[in-house]
Structure formats: C-alpha cells, structure tokens
Amino acid sequence: MENAIIKIRGLVKDYPMGVTYFRALKGINLDVQQGEFTGLVGPSGSGKTTLLNIIGALDNPTQGEVEVLGYQVDKLNHKQAARLRNENLGFIFQTYNLLPVYNVYENVEFPLLLLKKSADERKEAVIQALEWVGLMDKIKSRPAQLSGGECQRVAIARAMVKNPRIVLADEPTANLDAANSHHILQTMVKLNQELRTTFLFATHDDKVISYLRRAITLRDGMIAEDKIIQTT
C-alpha cells in the first residue's frame, strides 16, 4: 500500500455537543490506490460524509493522520486546502449545485477559470468533458432547461474537466430515477477506466453499490467491512 493516494491512520473526528462531544469517526485506517472505484457505504450517521469531508480537505481530523496525494490534510491552512481541491479534487453533489445563470459550457468552464487556464485550453477541455458525458447538444442550455440526469452529467463534466486525480461524490444518484442513475454511473465507470481517475463515493444507494469495485462499510464511525468486489 506504499503507492496509496489516500492514506488514513487512526483518524478520529469529534464534534462538540454542548459541554461534551460526539465522536463521528473512531480510529479509521484506510488506503486508497490510484484508479479505484470505491464507495463508503453504510446507514445515515455512520460517518460516510464526515470521512469524505476530511479526505476532500473540507474538514480537519481531531486525531490521526490523513494524507491525500502527498498532502497532510490536517496541516493544510485554508488557502492550501482550497488549492488542493482546486487542482486535484473533483466534487459531485447530490443536488448537482450548478450555477443557474450560466449555461452548460460555462458551468463546466468555471473550475478552469479558477486555475487560470488560457481560453484555448479551456475550450478544448470543456468540449472534451462534455463529449465524455454526452452533452454536446446541450452546450448552450441553462440548468433550468435540463433534466436531473443531464444536470448531474454536467456536474460530472465540471468535476472532470480539470482532470482531477480524485473525484469525491456524495450520494450522486439520490435525486435520480433508476435509468438516469445507471447512465450516470456508467459514465463514471467509463471515465474511471479511461482516465484512471479515482472515484470515492459516499452512498447507501444499492444502484451505486452495484457498480463499486471496492465497498468500505462504515458503522458507528468505524470500518465494519472493506470488501473488494470482483467485476466481470
């Protein structure tokens, strides 16, 4: 596990609750390799999103070490954490969270503007990302003109356009019907295979679980099961 891009050792996360605290994660040890298609699964309140937050440099551990792409997450300040997310991580949310006043092209282009890419580089990357998710015909559409599945595909394109090493997805199919869920997941599997992007999900959706190649089950803040799933 020397080549793991995510290394977690003895991770504890406490949230203050009045004079006491709530321990959301209780000594997590975990390694994730480049190119994995992995899910953090488990019931609500098991600590999936908390773990995803910490891996995504959105939150800090209370104890333990978390190393993402060589960066010690607990030692990053706000600006360094933002840079790590901006340059290396892609995020996919349950509710898409597209910018409503911008069209599909502009939503996908936005992360590249933050990376100060040139106009030519942006155009090339955005077109490629939209081709990956099959939305070239909706390039000028605004989010309000798209279906839920299409919105989530835009969100995937937005996450993938900067070619991140890791994509973190929190319940990405929770708002989608079965057909759209499968379409989205097939798109992500294809990207994972073609680009070797690591996908890490937080989910309790069976449809997502059925696509995972590794399922890490969390229960009460601890890893209850870490299972490699053989795919045909």
């Binding site: 959105l58 706000h78 933002a82 997310r85 995020f91 936005f110 933050l114 937005r158």
Partner: peptide, 8 residues
C-alpha cells in the same frame, strides 16, 4: 459550491 470546488 465554489468553496468546495477550490475557490479560496
């Protein structure tokens, strides 16, 4: 979203 994406 912008914070999550990595805008400081």
């Amino acid at each position: 979203v912008r914070l999550a994406i990595g805008e400081s």
